[in-house]
């Protein structure tokens, strides 16, 4: 990458504009310096966030022994897995409905409505959900994880929808037409042609919504009942008390999980067709 920036001087490219490399470096620095620092101090032996007292895995061990962290992590995972599965399923159907049918009235409106949650300030959604679920809670007396899963699934739909829709838009309808021509019924066309070709988009949608659900704070904070902390809300709670590198350790693990998900996604979608 850097090699490219500095050495490929022969052809014309925007990268030779004056100051381009400097700006690029500043951006990278602003992006990665804080994260690097965070990861770095997660290996601090002492209990200070700024004073380096030697390398150790102390805070990782500490975090993993912390029962609250264990529970929160488990909860986060359950919610993220359920929410991403539900939202991907819904998003796939929505994307098929908005691209693979004959154009119908109100199609644009549906598209806008699916993506509206991206525009609405999260705090508004959070308050709305809080009030809405409060009503349901008084009627049903159910206080379980269902609310969090439903809430996460709901706001993950547009994130899952976009890559699936993009993939479908890029997919020529003529292949499905050809399969129909070769005696495949619509269901078989879907199973044998549409779905396999759509798969990278579905995977991207699922991973994106998984990561989005995993690090959500605001909506979770509003919707959760007492004792339903996820990792991010647990960390937020900790920050109000004593801050130790344990936070760094948890953050680093979250970061690692996101990286793994992204890597898996790249490996899966590398086959291009």
């Amino acid at each position: 990458m850097l090699n490219r920036l500095f050495w490929k001087k022969r052809e014309f490219s925007v990268t030779y504009q004056f100051g381009f490399a400097t700006i690029a470096l500043i951006c990278f620095f602003a992006l990665y310096a804080p994260i690097t620092t965070l990861v770095f101090y997660s290996f601090n032996a002492g209990n200070n966030l700024m004073l380096w007292e030697g390398f150790s895995f102390h805070w990782y061990v500490e975090a993993s022994k912390n029962e609250l962290v264990q529970e929160a992590a488990m909860r986060s995972l359950i919610i993220a897995v359920c929410a991403s599965l539900i939202s991907t399923l819904v998003a796939t159907m929505a994307a098929l409905g908005t691209t693979r049918t004959a154009p119908f009235k109100g199609q644009k409106l549906i598209f806008i409505m699916i993506n509206q949650p991206l525009m609405v300030p999260e705090i508004v959604t959070a308050v709305a959900l809080l009030i809405f679920f409060a009503i349901i809670k008084t009627f049903t007396n159910y206080y379980g994880l269902g609310y969090l899963i439903t809430a996460h699934a709901a706001f993950c739909v547009p994130f899952a929808y976009l890559p699936i829709k993009a993939r479908l838009d890029g997919m020529d309808l003529s292949m499905e037409t050809a399969a129909g021509d070769l005696y495949a019924t619509p269901f078989v066309v879907f199973r044998r042609i549409t779905l396999p070709l759509l798969w990278p988009g579905i995977l991207a949608g699922a991973m994106l919504s998984f990561v989005i659900s995993l690090d959500d704070v605001i909506i979770t904070e509003f919707v959760k009942t007492a004792g339903q902390d996820t990792l991010p809300t647990y960390m937020l709670g900790q920050l109000r008390r004593v801050i130790t590198p344990e936070i760094n350790a948890i953050s680093s693990v979250l970061l690692a999980v996101s990286l793994v998900v992204v890597t898996i996604f790249f490996l899966f979608t590398r086959k291009r067709y």
Binding site: D172, S174, M175, T177, A178, A179, G180, D181, L182, Y183, A184, T185, I193, P196, L197, Y273
Partner: peptide
């Protein structure tokens, strides 16, 4: 009649082969 019930096959101008 839908295309999958017609004994008619097409060689498409754009080929439309299944890439997978």
């Amino acid at each position: 009649l839908p295309p999958y019930h017609r004994s008619v096959n097409t060689v498409f101008q754009s080929y439309a082969l299944f890439p997978h």
